[in-house]
Structures are given as structure tokens and as C-alpha cells.
């Protein structure tokens, strides 16, 4: 009988342990970036944003393959983006990993504005960032949308003098994604 009880408590523990880390993931979030320079407007986007949130710890991770960005004003621009600016052969991905500062109740539906604090790594240069995001808990998913800027100079991406009027240092980034419980 004692043993039986032990087994039961064990199960309970086990169940508690397995339900504890609820992970939400997505493979097809969208990322859009925009450079608004005096002479040229550059737009590119990708639908390959990968994201994961661990609801038990309030942790998150995001990852995007640099080569997946499409758009641009001409094919050569995309080639230069990969070859000369982001150097996607050397640094194939950009990542953002960290923790949500606010405590979020993932069990009640609703919209929240949260601050995500973490390490943003682009072009191999890591920056600690706090990025404000709107999130919506729908029950079985988390919708995230966020607007923020990235300075090329923060990530060691120099702008050659000849394209100074065609490329902004401040890049506007928009993210939209929906993460589902795994």
C-alpha cells in the first residue's frame, strides 16, 4: 500500500513536471525591415522567423535566416545585402534570446504590452536590448507584434560613403508572428 502511494505521488510529481514547461513555437513568423534614406527606400521581408516561448520561465528565443529575406529594389541589392553588409555566409542568422520582464498570465486571454529583454545578435555583434512588444494570449496561441529599430552602426555594418544617401543607419523592423503551444 505504501509503495502504491509512492507510485501515485511519483506520478503526480511527474505530471506536474511535464505540464510545467509549456512551450509555444512558430516557424513562419514574418519580419520586415525598411531603410528610409533620402534617395532610396529599401524594403525586404522574410516569412521564416522561428520563435519559442517557455511560459513557465517567461523565456523566449527568436531566430531568422538572413538569406531568407526577399524584396529589395533589384537582385544585385540582395546579393550585396548578403555579401557585403550582413555577410550571411559568415553570420547566417540573426537571433534574439532572453526573458520577458513582466509576468504574463498565459492562462487568461487578453492583450498585454510587454518588454522583452535579451541579447540581439545581428552580423555577429551582440547587443543587449529591451524591445517593447504587443502580445495577445488567445488560449492556445500567443500573437506577437513589435516595431523597433536597429542601428547598423550598433552591429558593425559600415555604410560606404557612396551609398550614404541611399542607405539609412536606422533600420525599421516590424515583426508579426503567432506561436502555438507545442
Amino acid at each position: 500500500m505504501k509503495l502504491f502511494l509512492l507510485v501515485i505521488t511519483g506520478w503526480v510529481f511527474c505530471a506536474a513536471a511535464t505540464t510545467d514547461p509549456v512551450i509555444y513555437t512558430s516557424n513562419n513568423g514574418s519580419v520586415n525591415f525598411r531603410s528610409e534614406a533620402p534617395f532610396e527606400l529599401i524594403n525586404a521581408s522574410s516569412k521564416e522567423l522561428k520563435g519559442a516561448i517557455d511560459a513557465s520561465k517567461n523565456n523566449f528565443a527568436f531566430r531568422i535566416r538572413i538569406r531568407s529575406f526577399e524584396g529589395f529594389n533589384k537582385p544585385l541589392q540582395k546579393e550585396h545585402f548578403n555579401e557585403n553588409y550582413l555577410e550571411s555566409e559568415k553570420y547566417p542568422e540573426a537571433t534574439f534570446n532572453g526573458k520577458i520582464i513582466e509576468t504574463v498570465d498565459y492562462s487568461t486571454k487578453g492583450k498585454y504590452t510587454v518588454r522583452a529583454k535579451g541579447i540581439l545578435s545581428i552580423h555577429g555583434v551582440e547587443q543587449e536590448r529591451i524591445i517593447k512588444s504587443d502580445i495577445e494570449i488567445t488560449g492556445n496561441s500567443i500573437r506577437i507584434s513589435s516595431n523597433f529599430t536597429v542601428l547598423l552602426s550598433d552591429h558593425n555594418i559600415p555604410i560606404p560613403r557612396v551609398v550614404k544617401e541611399k542607405l539609412a543607419n536606422e533600420i525599421k523592423v516590424t515583426i508579426n508572428t503567432e506561436l502555438f503551444a507545442k
Binding site: 510529481f13 511527474c14 506536474a16 512551450i23 513555437t25 522561428k50 528565443a61 531566430r63 537571433t95
Partner: peptide, 26 residues
């Protein structure tokens, strides 16, 4: 019982590295 306990502890002790998870998936 022993199995169950080990299992439970293993699950508890495992700290899920989200970044690694995405990296592997990628």
C-alpha cells in the same frame, strides 16, 4: 516507483534551452 521518480526528476532538472531548440530545428 523508482522509474517514475527518476523520470520526474529528469523532467524537472531539464532546463529547456529554447535557442538550442530553434537552432537544431533550423
Amino acid at each position: 516507483a523508482l522509474f517514475v521518480f527518476i523520470f520526474a526528476f529528469a523532467a524537472k532538472a531539464q532546463d529547456i534551452d529554447l535557442n538550442k531548440m530553434l537552432e537544431e530545428e533550423q
